[in-house]
């Protein structure tokens, strides 16, 4: 391959034209833009419709949800479901569930960022015996369905007396438990020019300094996209909290959400959907703030010498 993008030539976020604008007339450009927006808007409408329907349903009375009514509209729109949803469950306020979810999600973000970046540095930048073997093992952990390790893992935490604490839910994040993120960061670091750390090494820098002062700053976009993914996944996690938490005051949202629906009693689908909608807000906000970094995060756009 002869065409390479040296750091100075690296296309920036805004300069990656698929079409060469100069070769086209203004009219053609406008037409293309119109077609683009038409196509994108139609797609957006299709993709977002189920979400809209969900939001609309959160304003419908319970008896109109599910079953026969598939239309977006209802003549009985009201805020009742939100009132119920905000009312709390069994003496625990809904705000408490939000707070718990937030603690868990932020804890997951911090833990994943710290541990995955350090581990990825070892895999991507340090040559040590057994590296390939460990890398293969890490990939292998992605292959085992998690249901069969639930019980042995539970027993470990139970013997350590850590059930009903957040430790079992967070410790895995601080120990680079999710191979997906380590792999993602390994890939990212491999994309960074080796010359950078070779130069630093000649200057006498150790691994700690190379990692801290060269890699981490360059990895900022990758760290941000990892944050977003891990925030969202932790926010939506149901099984871990179900197994490890006993005290309702410690429950995060996904556990609370389920208590509006009970197969053996009456179910309040309206309140459940309302709470789902509310639960969506923080992740949506988190995503909207950081979304532009996702695209940079997995690439090397941040690299400018």
């Amino acid at each position: 391959m002869t065409t390479t993008a040296s750091p100075t030539h690296a296309p920036t976020d805004t300069a990656a034209p698929v079409y060469n604008p100069k070769s086209e007339s203004v009219g053609v450009k406008r037409a293309k833009s119109a077609i683009f927006h038409a196509a994108a808007l139609i797609l957006t409408a299709i993709v977002l419709y189920p979400g809209l329907w969900m939001i609309a349903s959160s304003f419908k009375p319970n008896s109109e949800i599910g079953g026969q009514n598939t239309s977006l509209w209802s003549n009985n729109f009201s805020f009742d479901n939100f009132v119920t949803a905000m009312d709390g469950i069994g003496g625990v306020s809904t705000l408490q569930f939000f707070t718990n979810s937030l603690i868990l999600a932020l804890g997951a973000v911090v833990g994943t960022i710290l541990s995955a970046s350090v581990s990825a540095y070892a895999f991507a930048r340090i040559n040590f015996p057994g590296r390939s073997l460990f890398f293969g093992m890490m990939i292998a952990t992605l292959l085992l369905p998690f249901h069969v390790v639930i019980i042995p893992q539970y027993i470990i935490f139970q013997q350590l007396g850590l059930v009903d604490t957040y430790v079992p839910l967070l410790i895995g994040k601080f120990l680079a438990g999710d191979a997906f993120f380590v792999f993602l960061m390994v890939q990212f670091m491999r994309g960074l020019p080796a010359e950078l750390d070779e130069a630093a090494r000649i200057d006498g820098a150790g691994h700690a300094r190379i990692f801290g002062s060269i890699m981490l700053p360059l990895m900022k976009p990758a760290l941000i996209s990892t944050s977003i993914f891990s925030f969202i996944w932790s926010w939506n996690d149901f099984l871990g909290p179900l197994l490890y938490l006993n005290t309702p005051e410690k429950y995060p949202l996904p556990l609370a959400l389920r208590l509006f629906v009970d197969q053996t009693q009456s179910s309040d689908y309206g309140a459940m959907i309302a709470m789902s909608v509310l639960a969506l807000l923080p992740v949506l906000i988190f995503f909207l703030i950081f979304q532009r970094y996702i695209v940079e995060g997995v690439s090397t756009q941040g690299l400018k010498g």
């Binding site: 009312d87 469950i89 069994g90 003496g91 006993n246 309702p248 208590l259 509006f260 629906v261 009970d262 053996t264 009693q265 009456s266 179910s267 309040d268 309140a271």
Partner: peptide, 15 residues
Amino acid sequence: NYTWWGNDDRAERTR
């Protein structure tokens, strides 16, 4: 420790 299944209504009554 006492544990049960059920919806928010049962949680309230049990409390």
